[in-house]
């Protein structure tokens, strides 16, 4: 290959790298803001210190996930502090009794079965293992939705992978020799 040919080829490589690393994420992900400017840190300090104070299990062992407005308005029927975020939250959601449409970073496809209680109670995994240090964050990270699949780009955990993928689940199960059958985690 001539020098000129090498240069043209390298320009092509560089152009693709630039497009793939810088341009592609902008195109494929659409950034949404959460409906409420929520601080886990403030709530952890003032309302409850444990995750399951708000993200509770029901009596039958199922996980209730993001708390509903009832739980929020239990304390926030009227403003408790003086922040703008709280004022907005009360005006937009508590007063009209409208459920905020939270964007769930950890949302899984319909065919996935995941039992929180088995992982938390039986296997004693910490919430942070998959969800990262959400509990101490001051702001909610932006929700970057994949335009094709519809799922979040990141769950902001520190499981070593960008999202809760099947590979991440299988890797952990394999390590603990708990890899039995597909239907363990699929429904």
């Amino acid at each position: 290959m001539t020098l000129r040919g090498t240069i043209v080829f390298s320009i092509g490589v560089l152009a693709a790298l630039g497009a793939g690393w810088a341009g592609f994420p902008r195109v494929i992900y659409q950034t949404h803001r959460q409906p409420v400017d929520f601080s886990h840190q403030i709530h952890a300090d003032k309302a409850g210190s444990k995750c399951d104070d708000c993200h509770a299990f029901r009596a039958d062992g199922t996980f209730a996930g993001v708390p509903t407005l009832d739980k929020c308005s239990g304390c926030h029927a009227a403003a408790m502090g003086s922040t703008v975020a709280e004022k907005n939250f009360i005006e937009r959601f508590v007063t009209p009794q409208r459920e905020p449409e939270w964007l769930v970073y950890a949302r899984q496809p319909e065919n996935v079965y995941f039992s929180h209680i088995t992982h938390v109670k039986r296997a004693n995994l910490k919430c942070e293992r998959c969800h990262g240090n959400q509990g101490t964050s001051n702001t909610l990270p932006p929700f970057q939705q994949d335009r094709i699949s519809g799922y979040s780009r990141d769950i902001w955990g520190h499981a070593g992978r960008p999202a809760m993928t099947m590979d991440a689940c299988v890797a952990c199960h394999r390590q603990s020799h708990l890899e039995h059958s597909c239907l363990d985690c699929h429904k």
Binding site: F57, D60, G61, T62, S115, I117, T118, K121, L183
Partner: peptide, 15 residues
Amino acid sequence: HGRWHAAKAKAVANG
């Protein structure tokens, strides 16, 4: 199998 999942979660919940 959905009922098996639910029964398992209930068993864990009850320890």
